[in-house]
């Protein structure tokens, strides 16, 4: 068991090194002078230019530069943003709770709806429920979510006036020492109406971000369930007179969940890509919008730091899923 875990973790080291090389190399392959790009200053005097070159380390051999970059990253130094002049890591950590809250709600919706729909569709294979839900899932899977978000805004904010168009909470509420997890802050502050304001801001972005994972999970659950329902041990359980509810709950569902857990894990990378679009549409102040803004503002230290952090987070989540997979599926662990 420990060997399985250690093996998985060691296997990641080359990928991790590759990720740092991509983040390091990114600034150096950009068109233009990297010193000017990273300093974000224009019209430099030759003295200032030489000083900056030395300060940023561009006058040293490339492998020394990479070593220094790695050393700084390991010490939590991702450089300073060219726009706000604050440390990139600080910016990232301030905005990350917003993305995490959104992603968590979206994933919650996707699993809570997707798994039961997939199970029922598989049990009632060929029924109208199966056909309607799987057609809907395919439409959801094909959805351009940036357009879907705009449609929801037109309907729920423009026509019905049920939800706000953008942001995380009404401007009436402010939490000076908050955690940046708006739901939590709203509850902890005890202010009347704060929680409902936070939830009403969260609902549309969550639906939009949940759309594709929901469709994928529903489809995957259905096919995993169908496969399991055809197995001998399910037939045996049925033949010996076990009530259908127990056959499905105990024998089928548990085994069908194994591939579904992997699918859910794989959605985390998709969720980050979706967050870029969802946050842009709803002006949600999270990592996705920050990355898009940083790219269009040419704030390259922020892009570099963000790229590194996001890749590491996705990798760590995938590792956790892998380990979880080993935990629930002993066949993998002992191979």
């Amino acid at each position: 068991m420990i060997r399985f875990f250690l093996g998985k973790i060691l296997w990641l080291i080359p990928t991790l090194i590759g990720i740092t090389i991509v983040a390091f190399g990114f600034v150096r392959v950009l068109p233009g002078d990297p010193v000017l790009l990273m300093a974000g200053e224009r019209g430099l005097s030759p003295e200032r230019y030489a000083e900056l070159t030395h300060q940023l380390g561009f006058d040293r051999p490339i492998w020394v530069q990479y070593g220094e970059f790695l050393w700084r990253v390991l010490h939590g130094d991702l450089g300073n943003s060219l726009v706000t002049h604050r440390p990139v890591l600080h910016e990232f950590l301030t905005l990350f709770p917003a993305t995490l809250e959104l992603a968590f709600c979206a994933m919650f919706l996707a699993i809570v709806i997707g798994v039961p729909v997939g199970v029922i569709a598989a049990i009632k294979r060929g029924s109208w429920f199966d056909q309607v839900s799987m057609t809907t899932a395919l439409v959801g899977y094909s959805m351009p979510i940036f357009w879907w978000g705009l449609l929801l805004i037109i309907l729920f904010s423009g026509v019905l006036h049920w939800t706000p168009v953008s942001g995380r909470i009404s401007l009436m509420y402010y939490f000076p020492n908050g955690t940046n997890f708006m739901i939590w802050d709203a509850i902890a502050s005890g202010q009347k109406g704060a929680l409902s304001s936070a939830l009403s801001h969260l609902i549309l972005p969550s639906i939009v971000l949940a759309t594709i994972p929901l469709a994928v999970i529903a489809r995957q659950t259905r096919s995993a369930m169908l496969e399991v329902l055809g197995e001998d041990y399910v037939r045996t359980a049925r033949a010996k007179g076990m009530p259908p509810r127990r056959v499905i709950g105990i024998h089928a569902l548990r085994n069908a969940m194994i591939p579904v857990v992997t699918t859910i894990g794989l959605q985390v990378g998709m969720l980050m890509a979706g967050a870029i679009l969802t946050e842009t549409i709803f002006s949600w102040p999270g990592i996705g919008k920050w990355m898009v803004d940083s790219i269009s503002r040419r704030d390259y230290p922020s892009v570099q730091g963000g790229l590194l952090m996001i890749a590491v987070i996705v990798m760590v989540v995938n590792l956790i899923v892998d380990l979880l997979y080993g935990l629930i599926n002993p066949r993998i662990r002992h191979r």
Binding site: F26, L30, I276, V303, L307, I310
Partner: peptide, 24 residues
């Protein structure tokens, strides 16, 4: 395959955005 793993570690749209930032 290690290089492929590194590319897959980044969310596709984010990596595409970064490549576009490089290429214009």
């Amino acid at each position: 395959m290690r290089v492929m793993d590194v590319i897959l570690a980044f969310p596709s749209l984010l990596l595409a955005l970064v490549f576009v930032a490089i290429l214009g």
